[in-house]
Amino acid sequence: MAEWLYEAGIGEARAALVEGGTIVEARVAHEGGLRAGSVRRARLARITAPGRRGLATFDDGEAVLEPLPPGVAEGGRLLIQIVREAIPEAGRPKPARARAAAEGAEVGDGPDLAAQLAAGDVPVRAVPVHGPDLLEAAGWSELIEEATDGAIDFAGGALRLSVTPAMTLFDVDGVLPPAALALAGAQAAARAIRRMEIGGSIGIDLPTVSDKAVRQAVAAVVDAILPQPFERTAVNGFGFLQIVRRRVRASLPELLAADPVLTAALGLLRQAERAAGIGTRTLVAAPAVIARIAERADWTEALARRTGTAVALRADAARAISQCYVQTDYPPPRP
């Protein structure tokens, strides 16, 4: 039976939809930030496309407002609702998107990850810090590694995931015959799209297959794996398939790539929560990672409270950002 595993971590919440012991969908939500569904009192700061689009500003941010509600001029006040969260992007992050809020809407934040999961029809199980690491058992670290470096292996081939300003691209390569590789690659890409909550415009570059029946079978594989709603093209003669999915927030690859130091810091805190042994937990990482954790006394205080131990930080300039580990005074004996 499918179930969501939910973990309220330090600095972020994590969730994985697990079926048959495997993660089929995953979500990570950093603390803070403007969530989809939030309602704000805003000012129409600027009309960027008359009759269609403008920029709304409010106390804790700004959002592209589309469509423009009738009767609101520049400088006018209105209630807006966030329909898509801000998307991190190298050089020019995409601001949140909003629409005019429904009449009678109350100002407030949109649902957090726990509330979003609870509103669905799939059971949710909270994963405690003390006990088996159910997320890890389902393949959490492997998923995070795939989303971070973009290399996704499958039997007979591999995907290379690339996030661009225009779309997320999957390049399929491998040793299988073209028809078999196209089918296997499409299946692997569709699973990755769902696992990493990739939305917006997505392209899959498959081997060129001249047989129309094979191209139709490839499209059918995608239809069978990705839940609706989404739109797609047919597989063209050059092996390219485009998919468009609703986009409410950043995908897992976008979120992890937006701030590698933060990603490493939050991952190290998760390690520390579950570290074996007793005594002081010493977090060892690159100076930038340690500095990020040191800036947040609430993080180390939460870690000390959850583990019942003292917490120490140690910077190691010889380590890459991703090379973090946790040391305890008295590690468990070797089996």
Rank of each mutant, 00 (worst) to 15 (best):
G61D: 02
R292T: 11
R77V: 09
A276Q: 14
S141R: 12
G203Q: 04
A184L: 08
E136Y: 07
A265D: 11
L256A: 02
P132C: 00
R125I: 09
T22F: 00
G51S: 10
A310W: 08
R319M: 13
F240M: 14
L17R: 12
D171M: 07
P331K: 04
G9A: 10
L68V: 09
A8R: 15
T307F: 13
R319K: 15
R247L: 14
V28I: 15
G76E: 11
R84Y: 05
P123Q: 09
T208Y: 00
Q242R: 13
R246W: 01
V127D: 05
A312V: 06
R215H: 06
W4N: 09
I278F: 10
E273M: 13
A276G: 15
A102S: 13
F238L: 15
L44K: 07
L143N: 03
R53I: 11
A118F: 03
Q327H: 12
A180L: 12
W4A: 07
A126C: 01
S210N: 08
I47D: 01
L206M: 03
L134D: 03
T307E: 13
V24R: 14
E295W: 01
G21F: 08
E254D: 11
V209D: 02
R160F: 00
I204F: 01
E74R: 09
A213F: 03
G120T: 12
L181Q: 11
A220E: 14
P95V: 13
R247Y: 01
R292W: 13
P128A: 08
C324E: 06
Y325N: 12
G156C: 03
N236V: 02
A275M: 06
L143Q: 01
I293R: 12
A36L: 03
D109T: 12
R249A: 15
E146G: 06
E146L: 03
V175H: 03
Q271F: 07
A26D: 05
I152P: 00
L266A: 03
A16W: 00
R215C: 02
I293D: 11
G199R: 06
A166H: 02
M1Q: 08
I293L: 12
P111G: 07
G91N: 03
G75C: 10
A264S: 15
H130M: 06
I278C: 03
D316S: 04
G308H: 08
A286Q: 13
D121R: 14
A297K: 15
A96W: 11
P128G: 10
L17D: 00
P69F: 06
G61H: 05
A182F: 02
V28K: 06
L159H: 00
R27Y: 07
G76A: 14
D223N: 06
Q242F: 05
R14C: 11
P332Y: 06
D298P: 06
I321Q: 07
A315I: 12
L313G: 11
L135Q: 09
G174S: 04
A115S: 12
E89M: 14
R27I: 00
V107I: 15
G21W: 09
G61S: 03
G279M: 05
A310C: 00
T148D: 07
A63M: 09
R14V: 14
Q327G: 01
T263R: 09
F230K: 05
E12N: 05
H30Q: 10
I144M: 14
